[in-house]
Computed example of a mutant assay.
Amino acid sequence: MSDPFVQEFEQGRIDAKNRANKRNGSTALGLLVARIGRCRITRGPRGMWLADRYRFGFPAAGAFTVGSVAITRQEWPEILEHREWLLRHEEWHSFQYQRCGGLPFIPLYLAACAWSKLLTGDHWSRNRFERGAGLAIGGYTEHSMRSPLRVFAGRRGR
């Protein structure tokens, strides 16, 4: 993958992020979500928790992260073998949890999804968190912004 977000992190930065996400409660919430979703939970690379076989349809994503817990409906061993870069994308989200102080990331992320949906018709193209985690390594294709007139005209026509 040629995405600039596929990079190695310094171990000190990784450790600080994982400690912060443990303290701010976001990793605990991630482990709870994984348990409720009846996931298999294992330790992954760089201190991440990997939860797979998630049973629910929400959120509608190939993988998602809560704190330092990366959750997927698929199986992490297969993902790591064929698409290791996806974990890098999720790991960037775990750094975003740290920067947002933990759980405030969730409403901020949802607001960014709504903003992107308004501007582009999808939840990722103008979502600052998805862009910050690397759209390409998250498996996203960037869409252009709608013209402001089309956005408002589309709402009135319904």
Rank of each mutant, 00 (worst) to 15 (best):
L110C: 12
G139M: 01
Y140D: 03
G132N: 12
A112Y: 05
F64I: 05
T120Y: 00
I79P: 13
R99W: 10
W49C: 03
L31D: 01
S26T: 04
I106D: 01
L135P: 11
H82G: 08
I137D: 06
R128P: 01
R55T: 14
F64H: 04
G139K: 02
K17R: 15
W76C: 10
A61L: 03
T42K: 09
L87E: 05
L87W: 09
R73F: 00
D122W: 02
H89K: 06
S125C: 06
R99M: 11
L119W: 14
P77M: 11
Q74P: 00
G134T: 07
A28W: 09
E81P: 00
L50P: 06
A114Q: 11
Y54T: 14
G101H: 05
R23N: 10
V69N: 01
H89Y: 07
C100P: 00
L31W: 03
R23F: 10
A16Y: 02
L87Q: 05
K22F: 10
R53Q: 10
P107T: 09
G101C: 02
H123C: 11
G25M: 09
V33I: 15
R43V: 07
K22Q: 15
G121H: 01
L50T: 11
R55G: 13
E91V: 08
E75W: 04
R40Q: 13
